[in-house]
Design a protein around this nucleic acid. Structure first.
Lengths: 344, 344
DNA sequence: AGAAAAAATGCAACTGATTGCATAAAAATA
DNA sequence: TATTTTTATGCAATCAGTTGCATTTTTTCT
C-alpha cells in the first residue's frame, strides 16, 4: 500500500487560493494576518491533516528548538528526577529534548557530543562520564557559542555555568554525623578524585575529622568505581582492616547497599559494629535493612535550575560567557544504618 | 562575538572547483566518484570544519534515519537493558534514537507519539503505559505505514509485531515453584488485567494451581499499581487475611522488596512464614535480605530483537503488515526468599 | 586510430517552510 | 472624492543538500 503524499503549505495555499507566505504566517499565528484568514487557514490545515515539516522549518530558521542532554547513566533515581526537572521547564518554553547517555564511557560521551552537535541542538545540558578528563570534546560547542550547562559531574576548574550541590558540605555533614555517633575509624568509599564531586566529598570528610581532632588515615580511603562489584570489594577490604573500622561513608547508595549486605553476610551488625552512610537518597535506601542514612540529592531542582538557566541564555537574557555556579540545597537524611546511639 | 558562518558543500565545491553534486556524493562515499576525488573532498571537508546539515539532507531524502522509542519509565533495570539492546543494533545500522518516556501516563504517551510523528521518525519501538487502552493514538503511524514494534507492554489482540516474553509460562513457573515449596495459599499481587503482561501472569498462576488441584481463591488476587506504596499496602492486606497466606507472588521486584520489608517489620519471617517471588530480576533482588527469587526478564535480548525486526522492516526485507509475535526466553531464578525446604 | 563501453562529473530541479520587501486593499482623514 | 495611513497579502529568494539524467572524460577493444 502506497503511503499518501504529505500535505504541505502549498496544498493549503492552493485550496484556499492564497499565497504560501500567508499560510506560513497564519500557522504561526502571526497577528499580521487577518484573524478570519488565520482561522480559515488553521481549519483547513486541520482538515487536510497537515503536519509541519520540521526539517524545512529548521533549515530555514537555522534553529532546532531542541536541547541536547548528556548523562552518564539513565537508571538512577537521581538522573530521572533531573530529567523530570528539565522536562518541566523546557516543555513550557517549547523546547524538545534529545537525550543521550554515555554509560560512563568517555568515548561514548565524545560520540554523543559530536552527534548532538551535528543535530544542531540549540543548547546542551550535561553531566560528565566517570572517566572524562577535560572538556576538549565540547570545544565545537564553545567555538560556536552554543550554550552548555553542566550539572553534578562537572569540571571544576573550567569556566562554565554549572549546577551542583555543595559536595564539600555534604561530605562534611555525613562525616560529622558519624563522628557524633561515636565513630572514630571511618572508611570513605568514593571514586576517582579527579571528578569534582568525589574530590569535594573527601575534602568535607577530612575537614570534619580535622575539626574533631581525628587523625586522617590514608588507608581508610577506598577509591573505587561505585558499581555493584565495588560494594562487595569494599566490604571485604573493610573486614580485613585492623583495627576494624566502625563506620563507612559510601558515596553512592547502591554500592552502600551491596556493601552493607556483604558485611551482614559476614556477621557484622549494622549499625552497632559498623555504621553506614550512603549518598543520593535513592529508593533503595528505604528498602534495605537497616534503612540507609544518606545525603538527599535534589535532582528535580537541579534539572529545573539547569534548564531555566539554559533557556535564559538562549533567549539572550544572560551571557553564556559569564561563569556561573549554582548550588542546590542538599541535606543529610538520618535513618537506622548510622544510628549507634539509639533511635532518633 | 559573532558566530562564524557554517561551511556548506558549496564552499567545498568552490574551493576544489567542482560541482556540489560531486561533493555530496563523495561525502557519502559513493563509489561512483573517483577514489582520489573522494579522498580530496573528504580531506577538504575536514579541514574546513564542514558538518553536514541534517535538515537539508532529511528534507530532501524524506527520511530521518531516526527511530523513536516510547517507554513507560526510564528508571528500571529492565528498560535500561532494553535500551542498551536497541542501541547496540541501531547504532550499527546507522540510526539515531529519540527516546521519550510517558511516566506511566496515557496522556503523556499520546503526546509523545504525536511528537515523534511530527519529528518523522522512520520507525517506532514502544512499550505502553499503565493505563493505555487501545492503540488509537498510534493511528497516524499506521495510516502512513510507518512501522511500529511493541515490546513488553503490548496490546495483545492488536495486529502488530510485538516482542514479549511468555508471561503465562513465567506466572506458571513462579507459582509452581511456590507450590513445590509446600505453599498452599499463594497471594498474587499484580496490576490491571487489561494490560497483557499482568493478565497472562495471572493465567499462568491459575493454571499452576489447577494442575495441583489447589482451589483458586479470588481473594488472594490483589490488583495494584506496583508502586512503592502498593508494596506496603499489599503487605498489610496479607497480614489481615485469615488464614494467613504462606506465599506471595508479586509481579514486580521493587514492590516485592517493599512488601517483604513491611512484612519483616511486622515480625513475619521470610521465607519460613511467607515465601516471596518477584518479577524482573532487578539489581535490588540481590541486595535485599533474603535475596529475592524472581523471573529473569532478558531486556537486552528483547531490545535487540525489536530493533533488528524494525530495521528489517525499514529496509523492506519484511512486510510490517504481517503480524509477528516474537517470544524471548525468560526463566525463574531461585534465591532465598522462596526456599522453604532448605538451601538449593 | 576509431568506435564502443565504462567511469566520472555536472546540470538543474527538487525537498517545504520562512521572511524582507513590495504591493494591494481597506480604512481613516482631509 | 482625493489623499494619506494602516492593514493585509503576495513575490521570490533563501536555507543546504540530493539525485535523475545528460554530458564529458577515460579506458578498452577491434
Amino acid at each position: 500500500m502506497k503511503t499518501k503524499k504529505e500535505v504541505t503549505i502549498y496544498d493549503i495555499a492552493q485550496q484556499l487560493d492564497i499565497s504560501t507566505a500567508t499560510v506560513s504566517r497564519a500557522l504561526q499565528n502571526n497577528p499580521v494576518i487577518n484573524k478570519n484568514t488565520r482561522r480559515k487557514i488553521q481549519e483547513a490545515a486541520r482538515e487536510l491533516g497537515y503536519r509541519q515539516n520540521t526539517f524545512a522549518s529548521n533549515l530555514r530558521k537555522q534553529k532546532t528548538n531542541t536541547i541536547g542532554i548528556i548523562v552518564h547513566e539513565l537508571n538512577s533515581n537521581f538522573i530521572t528526577s533531573v530529567l523530570a526537572g528539565i522536562e518541566k521547564v523546557t516543555a513550557d518554553a517549547g523546547y524538545d529534548l534529545l537525550i543521550a547517555h554515555s554509560s560512563e564511557s568517555f568515548k561514548k560521551e565524545t560520540a554523543n557530543v559530536l552527534n548532538l552537535f551535528h543535530k544542531r541542538v540549540d543548547g546542551l545540558i550535561a553531566s560528565l562520564a566517570f572517566d572524562t578528563r577535560g572538556l576538549d570534546h565540547f570545544q565545537s560547542f564553545f567555538d560556536k557559542n552554543i550554550p552548555v550547562i553542566f550539572f553534578d559531574r562537572v569540571e571544576e576548574k573550567a569556566d562554565n555555568t554549572k549546577v551542583i550541590i555543595d559536595n564539600f558540605k555534604a561530605g562534611y555533614q555525613a562525616t560529622k554525623h558519624l563522628i557524633e555517633q561515636g565513630c572514630k575509624r571511618i572508611v570513605i568509599v568514593t571514586a576517582s578524585l579527579s571528578r569534582n564531586v568525589y574530590a569535594e566529598r573527601l575534602r568535607g570528610y577530612k575537614e570534619a575529622l580535622r575539626e574533631r581532632q581525628i587523625k586522617f588515615d590514608e588507608n581508610l580511603v577506598l577509591i573505587k568505581d561505585l558499581s555493584e562489584k565495588c560494594g562487595r570489594e569494599a566490604a571485604l577490604q573493610i573486614l580485613q582492616m585492623k583495627p576494624r573500622p566502625d563506620a563507612a561513608f559510601i558515596t553512592n547508595d547502591f554500592s552502600a547497599a551491596v556493601c552493607m549486605q556483604t558485611l551482614k553476610e559476614k556477621g557484622i551488625r549494622i549499625p552497632q559494629d559498623i555504621a553506614i552512610v550512603g549518598f543520593n537518597n535513592d529508593a533503595i535506601c528505604k528498602i534495605i535493612e537497616p534503612q540507609l542514612t544518606t545525603i538527599n540529592y535534589p535532582g528535580m531542582d537541579i534539572g529545573e535550575m539547569a534548564a531555566r538557566n539554559l533557556i535564559a541564555h538562549l533567549k539572550g537574557d544572560t551571557d553564556i560567557r559569564q561563569t556561573n555556579t549554582i548550588i542546590a540545597k542538599s541535606e543529610l537524611i538520618i535513618r537506622q544504618s548510622s544510628l549507634k546511639k539509639g533511635k532518633k
